[in-house]
Protein backbone atom coordinates (compact mmCIF):
# COMPACT_ATOMS: atom_id res chain seq x y z
CA UNK A 1 0.00 0.00 0.00
CA UNK A 2 1.49 3.31 -1.07
CA UNK A 3 0.78 5.92 1.57
CA UNK A 4 0.07 9.36 0.11
CA UNK A 5 -1.25 12.48 1.84
CA UNK A 6 -4.54 12.07 -0.02
CA UNK A 7 -4.95 8.46 1.10
CA UNK A 8 -4.18 9.28 4.73
CA UNK A 9 -6.44 12.33 4.92
CA UNK A 10 -9.37 11.04 2.86
CA UNK A 11 -9.03 7.56 4.38
CA UNK A 12 -8.88 8.99 7.90
CA UNK A 13 -11.87 11.27 7.33
CA UNK A 14 -13.86 8.40 5.81
CA UNK A 15 -13.15 6.13 8.76
CA UNK A 16 -14.09 8.94 11.12
CA UNK A 17 -17.39 9.51 9.30
CA UNK A 18 -18.33 5.83 9.39
CA UNK A 19 -17.45 5.43 13.06
CA UNK A 20 -19.28 8.63 14.01
CA UNK A 21 -22.33 7.26 12.21
CA UNK A 22 -22.20 3.93 14.05
CA UNK A 23 -21.28 4.92 17.59
CA UNK A 24 -22.79 8.41 17.91
CA UNK A 25 -25.41 9.22 15.26
CA UNK A 26 -27.08 5.80 15.38
CA UNK A 27 -27.61 5.73 19.17
CA UNK A 28 -28.51 9.44 19.09
CA UNK A 29 -31.34 8.81 16.63
CA UNK A 30 -32.53 5.48 18.01
CA UNK A 31 -32.47 6.02 21.80
CA UNK A 32 -36.08 6.46 22.85
CA UNK A 33 -36.81 9.93 24.11
CA UNK A 34 -39.67 8.72 26.30
CA UNK A 35 -39.56 10.16 29.83
CA UNK A 36 -39.33 7.50 32.53
CA UNK A 37 -42.20 7.01 35.00
CA UNK A 38 -40.54 9.18 37.66
CA UNK A 39 -39.55 12.03 35.35
CA UNK A 40 -40.81 15.59 35.77
CA UNK A 41 -39.37 18.84 34.32
CA UNK A 42 -37.17 21.00 36.56
CA UNK A 43 -38.37 24.33 37.91
CA UNK A 44 -36.46 27.51 37.19
CA UNK A 45 -34.54 27.57 40.48
CA UNK A 46 -33.71 23.86 40.17
CA UNK A 47 -32.34 24.52 36.70
CA UNK A 48 -30.28 27.41 38.06
CA UNK A 49 -28.84 25.08 40.69
CA UNK A 50 -27.99 22.55 38.01
CA UNK A 51 -26.05 25.16 36.06
CA UNK A 52 -24.04 25.93 39.23
CA UNK A 53 -23.45 22.19 39.68
CA UNK A 54 -22.04 22.02 36.13
CA UNK A 55 -19.93 25.17 36.41
CA UNK A 56 -18.34 24.22 39.71
CA UNK A 57 -17.47 20.67 38.76
CA UNK A 58 -19.62 18.78 41.29
CA UNK A 59 -19.76 16.00 38.69
CA UNK A 60 -16.10 15.08 39.27
CA UNK A 61 -16.95 13.53 42.63
CA UNK A 62 -20.65 12.68 42.36
CA UNK A 63 -22.16 10.29 39.85
CA UNK A 64 -25.83 10.46 38.90
CA UNK A 65 -26.62 6.87 38.06
CA UNK A 66 -27.28 3.92 40.32
CA UNK A 67 -26.07 0.51 39.16
CA UNK A 68 -27.70 -2.83 39.89
CA UNK A 69 -24.65 -3.71 42.04
CA UNK A 70 -24.97 -0.65 44.26
CA UNK A 71 -25.83 -0.33 47.92
CA UNK A 72 -26.24 2.95 49.74
CA UNK A 73 -27.73 6.26 48.71
CA UNK A 74 -30.25 5.92 45.89
CA UNK A 75 -30.05 2.14 45.68
CA UNK A 76 -33.86 1.90 45.64
CA UNK A 77 -33.86 3.03 42.02
CA UNK A 78 -31.65 1.65 39.21
CA UNK A 79 -30.98 4.34 36.57
CA UNK A 80 -33.01 4.31 33.36
CA UNK A 81 -32.38 6.13 30.12
CA UNK A 82 -35.68 8.04 30.39
CA UNK A 83 -34.45 9.75 33.58
CA UNK A 84 -32.03 11.86 31.56
CA UNK A 85 -34.10 13.19 28.69
CA UNK A 86 -33.69 16.86 29.68
CA UNK A 87 -30.06 16.68 30.79
CA UNK A 88 -27.76 18.97 28.84
CA UNK A 89 -24.93 18.32 29.48
CA UNK A 90 -25.22 14.81 30.92
CA UNK A 91 -23.95 14.54 34.50
CA UNK A 92 -23.51 10.78 34.84
CA UNK A 93 -20.01 11.28 36.22
CA UNK A 94 -17.06 8.92 36.48
CA UNK A 95 -15.96 9.09 40.10
CA UNK A 96 -17.61 8.44 43.44
CA UNK A 97 -15.36 10.37 45.76
CA UNK A 98 -18.70 11.45 47.18
CA UNK A 99 -21.99 9.52 47.05
CA UNK A 100 -24.19 9.08 43.98
CA UNK A 101 -26.78 11.87 43.91
CA UNK A 102 -29.35 10.60 41.42
CA UNK A 103 -31.86 10.03 44.28
CA UNK A 104 -30.57 12.64 46.71
CA UNK A 105 -33.78 14.71 46.76
CA UNK A 106 -35.54 14.53 50.13
CA UNK A 107 -32.84 12.46 51.84
CA UNK A 108 -32.16 15.46 54.09
CA UNK A 109 -34.13 18.63 54.93
CA UNK A 110 -32.97 21.98 53.52
CA UNK A 111 -31.29 23.11 56.76
CA UNK A 112 -29.01 20.08 56.76
CA UNK A 113 -27.99 20.96 53.19
CA UNK A 114 -27.28 24.57 54.16
CA UNK A 115 -24.93 23.51 56.96
CA UNK A 116 -23.38 20.93 54.61
CA UNK A 117 -22.72 23.45 51.83
CA UNK A 118 -21.26 26.03 54.22
CA UNK A 119 -18.85 23.39 55.49
CA UNK A 120 -19.48 19.69 54.79
CA UNK A 121 -17.52 18.72 57.90
CA UNK A 122 -20.09 20.51 60.07
CA UNK A 123 -22.47 17.61 59.51
CA UNK A 124 -20.14 14.94 58.07
CA UNK A 125 -16.88 15.18 60.06
CA UNK A 126 -14.84 12.93 57.77
CA UNK A 127 -16.05 14.42 54.48
CA UNK A 128 -13.42 15.73 52.05
CA UNK A 129 -15.87 17.86 50.04
CA UNK A 130 -14.90 21.54 49.63
CA UNK A 131 -16.82 24.26 51.50
CA UNK A 132 -19.04 26.27 49.18
CA UNK A 133 -19.93 29.22 51.41
CA UNK A 134 -18.16 31.56 48.99
CA UNK A 135 -20.92 31.00 46.42
CA UNK A 136 -23.25 33.13 48.53
CA UNK A 137 -26.60 32.22 50.06
CA UNK A 138 -28.61 32.79 46.85
CA UNK A 139 -26.54 30.33 44.88
CA UNK A 140 -26.56 27.81 47.72
CA UNK A 141 -30.37 28.02 47.86
CA UNK A 142 -30.45 27.21 44.13
CA UNK A 143 -28.05 24.29 44.60
CA UNK A 144 -30.20 22.97 47.45
CA UNK A 145 -33.32 23.26 45.27
CA UNK A 146 -31.52 21.26 42.57
CA UNK A 147 -30.38 18.59 45.00
CA UNK A 148 -33.90 18.28 46.42
CA UNK A 149 -35.17 17.68 42.87
CA UNK A 150 -32.80 14.78 42.19
CA UNK A 151 -34.99 11.73 41.85
CA UNK A 152 -37.87 13.69 40.26
CA UNK A 153 -41.27 12.54 41.57
CA UNK A 154 -39.64 10.05 43.95
CA UNK A 155 -37.75 13.00 45.42
CA UNK A 156 -40.94 15.05 45.61
CA UNK A 157 -42.55 12.43 47.88
CA UNK A 158 -39.52 12.46 50.15
CA UNK A 159 -39.31 16.25 50.23
CA UNK A 160 -43.01 16.47 51.14
CA UNK A 161 -42.44 13.97 53.98
CA UNK A 162 -39.46 16.00 55.23
CA UNK A 163 -41.61 19.15 55.26
CA UNK A 164 -44.48 17.44 57.08
CA UNK A 165 -42.26 16.10 59.86
CA UNK A 166 -40.19 19.28 60.01
CA UNK A 167 -43.36 21.11 61.05
CA UNK A 168 -44.20 18.49 63.70
CA UNK A 169 -40.67 18.40 65.08
CA UNK A 170 -40.53 22.19 65.38
CA UNK A 171 -43.86 22.21 67.28
CA UNK A 172 -42.49 19.56 69.63
CA UNK A 173 -39.21 21.40 70.16
CA UNK A 174 -40.97 24.66 70.89
CA UNK A 175 -43.21 22.97 73.46
CA UNK A 176 -40.21 22.54 75.78
CA UNK A 177 -37.92 19.65 76.75
CA UNK A 178 -40.57 17.51 78.51
CA UNK A 179 -42.97 17.51 75.59
CA UNK A 180 -40.15 17.31 73.03
CA UNK A 181 -38.59 14.20 74.57
CA UNK A 182 -42.05 12.64 75.02
CA UNK A 183 -42.85 13.38 71.37
CA UNK A 184 -39.52 11.98 70.20
CA UNK A 185 -39.95 8.77 72.20
CA UNK A 186 -43.51 8.29 71.00
CA UNK A 187 -42.26 8.30 67.39
CA UNK A 188 -40.41 5.05 68.20
CA UNK A 189 -42.49 1.82 67.97
CA UNK A 190 -43.49 0.50 71.40
CA UNK A 191 -41.42 -2.75 71.38
CA UNK A 192 -38.26 -0.74 70.69
CA UNK A 193 -39.00 1.66 73.54
CA UNK A 194 -39.21 -1.22 76.01
CA UNK A 195 -35.95 -2.76 74.77
CA UNK A 196 -32.80 -2.27 76.87
CA UNK A 197 -29.40 -2.38 75.15
CA UNK A 198 -28.75 -6.15 75.27
CA UNK A 199 -24.98 -5.82 75.51
CA UNK A 200 -23.30 -4.84 78.79
CA UNK A 201 -21.09 -1.75 78.90
CA UNK A 202 -17.41 -2.51 78.38
CA UNK A 203 -14.42 -0.17 78.12
CA UNK A 204 -13.67 -1.44 74.60
CA UNK A 205 -17.28 -0.94 73.56
CA UNK A 206 -17.23 2.66 74.83
CA UNK A 207 -14.06 3.33 72.86
CA UNK A 208 -15.64 1.96 69.70
CA UNK A 209 -18.68 4.08 70.39
CA UNK A 210 -16.53 7.18 70.81
CA UNK A 211 -14.84 6.53 67.46
CA UNK A 212 -18.23 6.28 65.76
CA UNK A 213 -19.47 9.39 67.60
CA UNK A 214 -16.49 11.38 66.33
CA UNK A 215 -16.96 10.19 62.76
CA UNK A 216 -20.72 10.60 62.53
CA UNK A 217 -22.35 12.60 65.35
CA UNK A 218 -19.97 15.25 66.67
CA UNK A 219 -20.71 17.86 63.97
CA UNK A 220 -24.27 18.41 65.25
CA UNK A 221 -24.35 17.07 68.81
CA UNK A 222 -20.93 18.49 69.69
CA UNK A 223 -17.93 17.11 71.57
CA UNK A 224 -19.77 17.17 74.93
CA UNK A 225 -23.15 16.08 73.61
CA UNK A 226 -24.87 19.39 74.31
CA UNK A 227 -26.13 19.82 70.75
CA UNK A 228 -23.76 22.73 70.16
CA UNK A 229 -21.65 21.25 67.35
CA UNK A 230 -20.53 23.55 64.52
CA UNK A 231 -23.66 22.71 62.49
CA UNK A 232 -26.00 23.90 65.27
CA UNK A 233 -26.45 27.53 64.09
CA UNK A 234 -27.84 26.30 60.76
CA UNK A 235 -30.29 23.69 62.02
CA UNK A 236 -33.85 24.07 63.28
CA UNK A 237 -35.00 22.30 65.32
CA UNK A 238 -31.47 22.34 66.73
CA UNK A 239 -29.54 19.12 67.45
CA UNK A 240 -30.61 17.43 70.68
CA UNK A 241 -28.77 18.28 73.89
CA UNK A 242 -28.42 14.74 75.28
CA UNK A 243 -28.57 15.86 78.91
CA UNK A 244 -32.29 16.60 78.51
CA UNK A 245 -32.78 12.86 78.10
CA UNK A 246 -31.73 12.23 81.72
CA UNK A 247 -34.59 10.84 83.81
CA UNK A 248 -36.96 11.08 80.84
CA UNK A 249 -37.20 7.39 80.05
CA UNK A 250 -34.79 6.91 77.19
CA UNK A 251 -33.79 3.29 76.47
CA UNK A 252 -31.13 1.48 74.47
CA UNK A 253 -33.86 0.49 72.03
CA UNK A 254 -34.86 4.13 71.46
CA UNK A 255 -31.27 5.07 70.73
CA UNK A 256 -30.87 2.16 68.37
CA UNK A 257 -34.08 2.86 66.50
CA UNK A 258 -33.39 6.58 66.09
CA UNK A 259 -29.80 6.08 64.95
CA UNK A 260 -30.87 3.37 62.53
CA UNK A 261 -33.92 5.16 61.18
CA UNK A 262 -33.11 8.84 61.69
CA UNK A 263 -35.74 11.42 62.60
CA UNK A 264 -37.12 12.50 59.25
CA UNK A 265 -37.91 16.22 59.19
CA UNK A 266 -34.99 17.06 61.47
CA UNK A 267 -31.35 17.08 60.41
CA UNK A 268 -30.90 13.67 62.08
CA UNK A 269 -30.24 11.27 59.17
CA UNK A 270 -30.72 7.49 59.21
CA UNK A 271 -27.52 5.51 59.60
CA UNK A 272 -28.76 2.02 58.77
CA UNK A 273 -26.73 2.03 55.55
CA UNK A 274 -23.55 3.27 57.18
CA UNK A 275 -23.39 1.49 60.54
CA UNK A 276 -23.81 -2.16 61.34
CA UNK A 277 -25.58 -3.45 64.40
CA UNK A 278 -22.62 -3.47 66.81
CA UNK A 279 -21.62 0.07 65.88
CA UNK A 280 -25.13 1.37 66.51
CA UNK A 281 -25.39 -0.32 69.95
CA UNK A 282 -21.89 0.94 70.84
CA UNK A 283 -22.45 4.56 69.86
CA UNK A 284 -25.88 4.59 71.53
CA UNK A 285 -24.37 3.29 74.74
CA UNK A 286 -21.45 5.75 74.49
CA UNK A 287 -23.96 8.60 74.43
CA UNK A 288 -25.98 7.08 77.28
CA UNK A 289 -22.97 6.50 79.53
CA UNK A 290 -20.92 9.61 78.66
CA UNK A 291 -23.47 12.38 78.20
CA UNK A 292 -26.53 11.21 80.14
CA UNK A 293 -24.91 9.14 82.87
CA UNK A 294 -27.71 6.57 82.64
CA UNK A 295 -27.42 3.37 80.65
CA UNK A 296 -29.62 0.29 80.55
CA UNK A 297 -26.94 -1.74 78.80
CA UNK A 298 -26.96 -5.39 79.85
CA UNK A 299 -30.02 -4.95 82.11
CA UNK A 300 -32.83 -7.48 82.03
CA UNK A 301 -34.93 -8.50 80.25
CA UNK A 302 -32.31 -10.11 78.06
CA UNK A 303 -31.66 -13.44 76.41
CA UNK A 304 -28.64 -15.71 76.52
CA UNK A 305 -25.49 -13.54 76.61
CA UNK A 306 -23.55 -13.44 73.37
CA UNK A 307 -20.53 -15.74 73.33
CA UNK A 308 -17.94 -12.97 73.54
CA UNK A 309 -19.25 -11.58 76.83
CA UNK A 310 -17.02 -12.13 79.89
CA UNK A 311 -18.58 -10.08 82.70
CA UNK A 312 -18.91 -12.33 85.75
CA UNK A 313 -22.32 -10.93 86.71
CA UNK A 314 -23.92 -12.31 83.59
CA UNK A 315 -22.81 -15.90 84.22
CA UNK A 316 -25.75 -16.80 86.49
Amino acid sequence: MKMTPTLIIIGGAAIFAVVLLIVVILPWTTISEEPSEIFRPRTEIEQRGRVLYVKNGCTYCHTQFVRNIDWGLGAERIARSGDYIEDQPHLLGTERTGPDLSQEGGEHPDDWHLAHFVNPRYVRPESIMPSWGFLGIDNIRALIAYKQSLGFTMADYRVARQKHWKQKSIEAYEAGPDDNVKWLHERVPEPWRQLPNPYPTTAAGLQRGQRIYQGFCIGCHGPIGDGMGPAQPYLYPPPLNFTVLRDRGVSGGIFYYQIMNGITGTAMPYFKRELESEKIWDVGNYVAVTFIGQSDAGRPPRGIPAAYETQPEVRE
Binding site: Y84, Q88, H90, L92
Partner: peptide, 11 residues
Protein backbone atom coordinates in the same frame (compact mmCIF):
# COMPACT_ATOMS: atom_id res chain seq x y z
CA UNK B 1 -23.50 19.39 24.70
CA UNK B 2 -26.47 17.52 23.27
CA UNK B 3 -29.24 16.08 25.44
CA UNK B 4 -29.72 12.99 27.59
CA UNK B 5 -28.02 9.62 27.17
CA UNK B 6 -26.82 10.52 23.64
CA UNK B 7 -24.81 13.32 25.25
CA UNK B 8 -23.07 10.85 27.56
CA UNK B 9 -22.29 8.68 24.53
CA UNK B 10 -20.97 11.64 22.53
CA UNK B 11 -19.00 12.95 25.51
Amino acid sequence: AITGMPDAILA
